[in-house]
Simulated assay, not measured.
Amino acid sequence: MNTAVVAESVNATTEAPVAKVTAIAQGSTAAAAEKPKAPAQPGRPFSLRPFFLKVLPPLFGVFFLIVVWEIVAARNSGIPSPLTTWKAALELFADPFYDNGPNDQGIGWNVLASLKRVGLGFGMAALVGIPLGFIIGRFSFFSGMFNPIISLLKPVSPLAWLPIGLLVFKAADPAAIWAIFICSIWPMIINTAVGVQRVPQDYMNVARVLNLSEWKIVTKILFPSVLPYMLTGVRLAIGTAWLVIVAAEMLTGGVGIGFWVWDEWNNLNVPHIIIAIVVIGVVGLILEQMLVGIARAFTYEEVKS
């Protein structure tokens, strides 16, 4: 057979399947191109339901409170109506920082004076209570030593310590700070100690194997583990401190929101008393939310408000 004829036969045999495959591929591509596209899935419609579920319940709660307040005010002439209290609030907050002397100052100065006392007493309680909580939780000897004292003194009302403060400090202002210190220190000590005691023993075993110093054990192992417990104690302490300062200032006098409430009661100015109650609640809520934000920033756990 001629060599040229053989070559043509081989080429024809080889090119036929390739051409067939190419035709099939082109046909599939054309069919795919001609195939109608599936309709796009419609996106989720925008819904205001989550927004309303978040906003409406608090609004209904406030509305319910105002309605109950209006009913009580209608039945008791001594209780001012919400409208009367609102008008008094507009006048009061028109100039909250006026100063006509030590016994006649705006509500803004009184709130700031109370916050200053709370800050001092609370800060000293943190400086003493948190390290003491670490010591009690870390060493069983100190735990056995201080636990009976804490169990004995913790149930005592902070106001019961106020006369002791007046006796020791001979002045109302440090006596009120002393009462804040006493009421704030117990939650910090207890929560910090519980946090230290709940640190997994495996962590301490690793520290012992690595021969870590006590300072490194505290800073590298205990502190990160105890931080959620410690911040919980701080939150409880600030709430208690803000409660106690109002009562303490009613007894000691001077400038402060507690004394302002008592002074308005002596003047029979009930709308101002109700305004002060709302202000006290708002300030306490702000303080707690600030600490919740700090807790969320420094811990991995979700902090419940």
Rank of each mutant, 00 (worst) to 15 (best):
V6Q: 11
V6E: 03
A7R: 14
A7N: 09
A7Y: 00
S9D: 15
N11G: 13
T14R: 15
T14Q: 15
A16L: 13
A16H: 04
P17R: 01
P17H: 01
K20L: 10
I24W: 13
A25I: 15
T29G: 10
A30G: 09
A30W: 02
A32P: 10
A33G: 14
E34T: 15
E34G: 14
K35T: 12
P36D: 11
A38Y: 03
A38N: 10
P39R: 09
A40R: 01
P42Y: 13
P42S: 14
P45R: 10
P45A: 12
F46H: 03
S47C: 05
S47Q: 03
S47M: 07
R49L: 12
P50T: 08
P50F: 04
F52Y: 05
K54H: 08
K54V: 02
K54I: 10
K54D: 07
V55S: 12
L56T: 09
P58F: 00
P58M: 08
L59S: 08
F60Y: 08
F60Q: 13
G61R: 08
G61E: 04
G61F: 08
G61W: 02
V62W: 10
V62G: 11
F63N: 02
F64N: 07
L65R: 02
L65M: 12
I66V: 14
I66N: 03
I66W: 13
V67H: 06
E70S: 15
E70I: 10
E70R: 05
I71Q: 05
I71G: 02
I71C: 08
A73N: 02
A73D: 08
A74L: 12
A74I: 04
A74V: 09
A74Y: 14
N76K: 02
S77D: 14
S77M: 08
G78E: 11
G78R: 06
I79G: 05
P80A: 00
S81F: 05
P82Y: 06
P82H: 04
P82W: 01
T84H: 15
T84Y: 03
T84N: 11
T85Q: 06
T85P: 01
T85W: 01
W86V: 14
W86S: 14
W86Q: 09
A88Q: 11
A88P: 05
A88G: 10
A88T: 15
L90P: 00
L90K: 05
L90F: 07
L90M: 14
E91G: 15
E91H: 02
L92T: 11
L92N: 07
L92H: 06
L92M: 10
A94L: 10
D95Q: 09
D95F: 11
F97V: 07
F97A: 11
Y98D: 05
D99M: 04
N100H: 12
G101R: 07
G101F: 01
D104P: 01
D104K: 12
D104L: 07
N110R: 11
L112P: 05
L115I: 15
L115H: 12
K116Q: 15
R117G: 02
V118Y: 10
G119M: 11
G119L: 13
L120T: 15
L120N: 10
G121V: 06
F122I: 08
F122V: 03
F122K: 01
M124W: 06
A125M: 03
A125V: 06
A126N: 02
A126W: 03
G129S: 03
G129E: 01
I130Y: 08
I130Q: 01
P131I: 03
L132Y: 09
F134C: 00
I135H: 04
I136R: 01
I136Y: 00
G137W: 00
F139W: 01
F139M: 00
S140H: 00
